[in-house]
Design a protein around this nucleic acid. Structure first.
Length: 128
DNA sequence: CCAATGACCGTAA
DNA sequence: GTTACGGCCATTG
């Protein structure tokens, strides 16, 4: 378990039931806003981690783009989201404006991020 | 050290 | 709405 993986784990665990985040968003909350792909990599390597709601993470367009393996699949992710009252279409898409999780300033400060950077992140994933 | 890979993102036309 | 392209950065061979 690397530092990066633990950071991903910590952020994903902040997402409450019924809410979702994008890979880029998770990367931004970690402090490496351009490392969206690594988030996907990290999750793939943590398929069995406890208390790890991996299904609440999808791409910025609100689409499930998981490749799928013996443990996880797009179909399973869809079912897990629907179990939390998140509407997912047959094409594995959902309304990000409605379901996106937004960390508040306090949460971001808890992650030990630079104040100026937090400002930037908040403006990027703010309401509206 | 260098090259390749990838559950992605943002911009541009 | 679409496709194309460059960039991103951790990990692996």
């Amino acid at each position: 378990m690397t530092v990066f993986q633990e950071a991903v784990l910590a952020v994903v665990r902040l997402v409450p039931s019924g809410k979702v985040v994008s890979y880029g968003q998770v990367a931004a909350y970690i402090g490496t806003p351009r490392a969206a792909r690594q988030v996907g990599w990290a999750m793939r390597s943590m398929e069995g981690a406890p208390d790890f709601p991996w299904w609440r993470v999808l791409n910025n367009a609100g689409k499930i783009t998981i490749k799928g393996n013996q443990f996880n699949s797009a179909q399973l992710q869809k079912e897990l989201l629907e179990a939390e009252d998140v509407a997912v279409s047959s094409t594995y898409e959902l309304d990000m404006a409605r379901y996106r999780f937004r960390a508040d300033a306090e949460t971001l400060q808890m992650l030990k991020l630079d104040p100026a950077y937090i400002d930037h992140v908040l403006s990027r994933y703010s309401i509206g």
